[in-house]
Simulated scan of single mutants.
Amino acid sequence: MNSEAAPDPGRIALGISYSGQGYEGWQSQPSGRTIQDHLEHALSQFADQPIATLCAGRTDAGVHGLMQVVHFDTPVQREPFSWVRGTNRFLPPDIAVEWAQPVPRSFHARASAIARRYAYVLRESPVRPSVDAGRAGWVFRPLQAEPMREAAAMLLGEHDFSSFRASACQSHTPVKTLHRIDIHRRGAYWRFEFEANAFLHHMIRNIMGCLVLVGQGAQPPSWMRQVLQARSRDAAAPTFSPDGLYFLGPVYEPHWGLPQHSAAYDWLP
């Protein structure tokens, strides 16, 4: 028996940005074509040993991340900047480690998050996206801001969001607390920001489908309350495209000392 004790693993948190185009979402799949697969391969290459990660919130195929947060345990000792630069050497150009920070063993990327934030970027134009294809949703009919804001306000607070829940959702409960929905426009682009304690599978994309119908005048703002109260997926609009959906990242208590902003935020409309 080896009398020398194994080193106690340290816990590292990372902030990750990525384009969801060309990937099968966050969670590892047999194909290896996911963000998690590429990140764990790069970390394992850099650390010269297998590393498994746990994320703050899984994203679907085509959904982008501006500051996904993960944590992992490892006995490997590296400076934070080395985890950033070293791991990025082994990542494809559309995935990057933005920052690294040692955290206590009590920190958990998912369980320690008190809220999660998303943005949806939507292009209103007679012409489909080109340069921004895959990075913005698209509508060709004009939208009106005030009806959408009125409809969005009906979703704030704690509700049963079953009407906006995908059939494959694994959440234990459809009851979530939606803290805010902000809607503003910059030129041809609309930006919808969502913050909640947690989200159901496809919840934002299903809400977006409803907001677009209201914004185009196909439904009145009061329809949103009817959809919510129905607690049935059949009551809501079809699921909207993933192209313009961005995971802005989790929100943590200040005492963890983790970054709340990354450079990837600054280019988003």
Rank of each mutant, 00 (worst) to 15 (best):
R110Q: 01
G25Y: 06
L248V: 00
V69W: 07
P9C: 03
Y189C: 11
L258K: 06
A152M: 14
Y265C: 01
H71E: 01
Y189M: 10
H159D: 09
S241F: 12
T74M: 04
R78T: 11
D234E: 14
D182H: 15
P269Q: 06
S171C: 10
A145L: 15
F161I: 04
C169N: 03
L156A: 14
R123W: 03
H202L: 10
L122A: 09
W99L: 09
Q27T: 05
Q36T: 09
P269R: 08
F199C: 11
D234F: 14
Q226H: 13
P126V: 03
W26S: 00
T34P: 08
L54C: 15
L14R: 10
A166K: 01
D94Y: 01
V131N: 11
V69L: 05
R110M: 07
R149P: 05
T239F: 09
R191P: 08
H41E: 02
E253L: 09
A136Y: 07
S162C: 04
V214C: 06
L200K: 12
A263P: 05
V139S: 10
S163I: 05
R123V: 03
R165A: 00
P75C: 02
S262C: 11
Q101W: 11
H38A: 09
Q21F: 01
A100V: 02
T34L: 01
R117V: 03
S232C: 12
S106W: 04
P126M: 08
P7F: 09
L200P: 00
Q29W: 01
N206W: 02
F90Y: 10
E193V: 02
P92G: 06
P129D: 02
A6V: 03
